[in-house]
Amino acid sequence: MWKFIVRRLIITFPQLIVLSIIIFLMAQAMPGDALTGLVDPNIDRAAIEEQREKLGLNDPWHIKYVDWISGIFQGDLGQSFRYKMEVTELVEQRMINTFWLSVATLIFTYIIAVPLGIISGRYNDTLLDSSITGYTYIGFATPLFIFALVMLWIFGYQLQWFPTGGSVAPGTEPGTIDYVMSKINHLLLPALSIALIQTVSTVQYLRSEIVDTKQRDFVITARAKGASESRVYNRHILRNSLLPIAAFFGYEITMLITGTIFVEQIFSFPGMGQLFIESVLQRDFSVVNAVVLLFGAAAILGALISDIILSVVDPRIRIK
């Protein structure tokens, strides 16, 4: 297992490097550079040129890349020309917001998916199963941003159960219980909106895994040993069906990224997704790059995590 994990980690590095190179080249291809937005148009051209030389903006691309990457390791993602502040600073709070939003979404996703998938798979072709399958079809057909809007309208504006924007009520003191509760309260509706839509693929996947596992011969062996039906499910079927779900985790993270982009926008939730859209619209390229880089890294790490989970639970990999 350790060998597998180490080997898997080793593969992750080139992935990250390729990602960073692509983003770096993208950044290079974009109009303007770090100085364009900062500089007063009245300053003399020669002075600008001198400044550029000093900042290393005229170096060949690989030297600039090394500079850039070492900057990133020191937490320097460049300057946002719109906010006139360090991207790192700008991103930090939003990253934390999005992180918690993602965690909440994942929790909801699995809270919904696991029981529904299990019921649907265990009692397949019953009325209960048909209604759950029906829900998954609706979930697949509904675009997330429309669904999120509907949720916002019903629970935010009509019923007013949840706040309709922001990540925390204004005026609450960080560190207090109220602050935490307010944060959580702001998370629930967007998280639930993503989860309700995103979970359907997991429900379907789990259902088909269980229906499939149910018919495997080793389940018959377990019954022939005299194991009760609940033991057969708990010891044999569920474990074998949940395994592929663990492998699905990486994909889930990628889905989340798209999810947050839409939903943060709709709920005016100050997270990475919202920042991404805003920056694209305002051509704040250094921010766009930083966000894409972080999203890309999250997707790569998601895949890594799901492979590691898999290697821990699946003996067929564990042994190698």
Partner: peptide
Amino acid sequence: LNGLRGDDMSMIFQDPLTALNPL
């Protein structure tokens, strides 16, 4: 029936490749 199966009566299955739990 579960009291009997595996105890008083038991069965050897046809296909050894699939009759055991892989995990």
